[in-house]
């Protein structure tokens, strides 16, 4: 255990498994919007490592920067200024040209959005849309059709050959999400970013889609970055969880650690706010207050006005990510680095 080196230049800010080769390595990703003179810092020095086949959840409230982070990995918003590095498969995505990014999107990294109702072009048949990523890559129509049919069947679309000729309005929400998933999977990417893939679906369909994603990602050895605010989804699906608050990663741990021994007071609060069927609580606990606007964060830890355990240091200094006592990483002054105390 090498915990005495506090100020080492390569301070670890993410949980990584040194034995596995990394697929995606985000380092100090900072995302700014607005004008150069008065920038709005949406995400501050975000780091995350993912190995092939890893399943990681990024959780946080609305406005915590989780979606912005996911979108920026794909470089979807040209107006945002991105600094840091996003190494994927040996190349820094931030250094690629827009043209090279077109080759990454859909082909190496797939993405699934929240709203399956709006995610399909109403004027194109399901088949044409599922085939599109292959067609733009130059695959001929017959081959693309064959692969579209097989991926739709893999995702449980019955009678795929016929249904490929249908239009989106003839599909239900759950079916559409399968189609959207098929579009993301058809080029055989090694990473899927799922931005709240089940939020717009009803609970029964949510469960179906998650089971399906679970099965497919296991079979294909697919890495999944799941963006969600639904901790129930997290527990059943992922191996590791990163918690974001006001643009920063404040907590990262394996699912077991996070649920059994949450380190950050914010994570503790989030977990208390989840209704559980095996506990009788007189009323649900909430975290008082609301997350700050990115242009108006409090000094020190951004969570301090809402934190029941905050003390003076919290109001003065932003806590850095440090190893948590139960494993994982946490950015909280309650857990000073082991070396600092001595």
């Amino acid at each position: 255990m090498n915990t005495t080196l506090i100020h080492s230049p390569k301070q670890e800010t993410t949980v990584s498994r040194p034995d596995a080769t990394t697929l995606l390595s985000v380092r100090n990703l900072t995302i700014e919007a607005g004008s150069k003179n008065s920038p709005l810092r949406l995400v501050d020095r975000f780091s995350l490592d993912m190995s092939p086949g890893d399943r990681v959840a990024l959780v946080g409230e609305s406005g915590s920067g989780k979606s912005v982070t996911a979108r920026s990995i794909m470089r979807l918003d040209p107006d945002f200024r991105l600094t840091g590095s996003i190494d994927f498969d040996g190349q820094d995505l931030l250094k690629l040209s827009e043209k090279q990014m077109v080759g990454i999107r859909g082909h190496k990294i797939g993405m699934v959005f929240q709203d399956p109702m709006g995610a399909l072009n109403p004027l194109m048949t399901i088949g044409d849309q599922v085939m599109e990523p292959l067609r733009v890559a130059g695959v001929d129509r017959a081959e693309a059709e064959r692969r579209a049919k097989s991926v739709l069947e893999e995702l449980g679309v019955a009678n795929a050959a016929v249904r490929m000729k249908a239009y989106p309005h003839e599909f239900s929400g759950g079916m559409r999400q399968r189609v959207v998933l098929a579009m993301a999977l058809i080029s055989d990417p090694s990473l899927i970013i799922a931005d709240e893939p089940t939020t717009a679906l009803d609970v029964r369909v949510q469960e179906q889609v998650l089971t399906l994603m679970d099965k497919v990602s296991k079979e294909r050895g697919l890495a999944v970055l799941l963006i969600t605010h639904d901790l129930g989804t997290v527990a059943g699906f992922t191996d590791r969880v990163a918690v974001m608050y006001s643009g920063r990663k404040v907590d990262e741990a394996s699912v077991d650690t996070l649920f059994n021994n949450p380190a950050h007071p914010y994570t503790q609060g989030l977990l208390q706010a989840v209704p559980r069927i095996d506990q009788t609580v007189p009323r649900l606990l909430t975290i008082a207050g609301a997350p700050p606007h990115p242009g108006n964060r409090p000094t020190g830890c951004a969570f301090n006005p809402r934190c029941s355990q905050a003390f003076d240091l919290c109001r003065e200094q932003i806590p850095e990510l440090r190893p948590a006592p139960e494993g994982g990483m946490v950015a909280c002054h309650l857990y000073p680095a082991a070396g600092k105390e001595q």
Partner: peptide
Amino acid sequence: AYVENARVLGVS
């Protein structure tokens, strides 16, 4: 959303 989705799938 479908335009964004197509963009994400690598459509030029």
